[in-house]
Structures are given as C-alpha cells and as structure tokens.
Simulated scan of single mutants.
Amino acid sequence: MNLNDAQIRSLQPGDRRQNKSVGDSLFLVIEPTKAGGGKSFEGRMRFPSGRGGKQISVRIGVYGRGLGRYTLSEARVEWTRIKNWSRTKDALSNKPA
C-alpha cells in the first residue's frame, strides 16, 4: 500500500517500531512512543545491485517541513538520486562523487 502525505500525517506512534511502505523500496519508519514517536524515511536496496549484493538500509531523513526535514515528494526524489548514484562506477569503487 503506497501512502500519501495526508495518510502519513494521520499515522500515530504505537508501542513498537512501524515500517510503512511508500513505494519503490522507500519506507516511512515510525519510532515507538517511548522513543519519541518520530517519523523518518528509509530506503532499502541491495549493494552492489543484484543477487550477490548485501541488503542495506539508507536513512534519508526526518519527515516534515522545514530545514533538515523531508516531505514525501522530496524523500522520493532523494531516494531516486541515491539509487541512481549507487549504480555508478564511483559508488562501486568507493570514490566520493
């Protein structure tokens, strides 16, 4: 189930950490109430890509508006940028872009 912005705003923290898919291997992570109940975006991929790669999680940032926060559309754009970079030769040779 892909979430939209209104659905993300309405989600409330519970007793356990929640992972909600927003599509394309991008997830909204909702921390439990006792940990502050924050919402953030996390992408999951295999690196290097393919069956031999190890699954890694990439924390994109905190959900919200303002400095240092990501809206749903901004998180999707950032996740696409990260995935595209991970497929380049620079990523595979561990050289900074």
Rank of each mutant, 00 (worst) to 15 (best):
S57A: 14
S86I: 01
L26W: 00
R69K: 15
N19R: 14
R17N: 12
R17T: 07
G43S: 13
G66R: 12
G36W: 02
Y70N: 05
E42T: 15
I60F: 13
R59G: 10
G38R: 08
R59A: 13
D24S: 04
R17Q: 14
G43I: 02
N19K: 15
E78P: 05
V62Q: 14
A35E: 11
E74Q: 12
Q18M: 15
L67M: 07
R46H: 01
K20I: 05
V58N: 06
R81I: 04
K39S: 02
L26T: 01
V29P: 04
V62K: 14
G50P: 00
L28F: 01
K34C: 11
W85G: 07
K54M: 10
G66D: 06
D90L: 05
R44P: 05
K39C: 03
S25V: 00
N84I: 02
W85A: 14
G52D: 13
L26G: 00
R44I: 09
S86N: 03
D15R: 05
M45R: 09
T71K: 05
L72P: 00
G23L: 03
K20N: 07
K83N: 14
G61D: 05
D90S: 08
R46K: 02
G66A: 10
R69M: 13
I30E: 05
P13I: 03
N84F: 01
K83C: 09
G14L: 02
L67P: 14
R59I: 07
K34T: 10
A91M: 03
V62W: 13
Q18V: 11
P48R: 04
P32L: 06
F47Y: 06
F27P: 00
I56Q: 06
V77K: 15
Q55R: 12
A75G: 09
I30N: 03
R65C: 09
Y70I: 02
S25P: 00
R51Q: 13
I60D: 05
G64Q: 10
R87Q: 13
E74R: 06
R51G: 14
W85S: 11
G14K: 06
S86M: 05
A75F: 10
L92M: 10
R16E: 15
R65M: 09
L72K: 02
D15E: 11
A91H: 00
K83A: 10
A35D: 13
G37V: 08
V62A: 14
A35I: 05
E78V: 11
R17L: 11
S73M: 12
D24I: 04
R17M: 11
G52K: 15
Y63M: 01
P13V: 05
I60W: 07
L26E: 00
P32D: 08
V77E: 15
G50Q: 01
S86T: 04
T71E: 01
S86A: 11
L67G: 09
W85E: 08
G14A: 06
W85R: 13
R87T: 08
A35N: 15
G38N: 07
I82D: 07
R59Q: 10
S25Y: 02
G52R: 11
W79C: 04
T88S: 15
K54T: 14
R65A: 09
R81K: 15
D15Y: 00
G68N: 10
W79F: 06
G50R: 00
E31F: 04
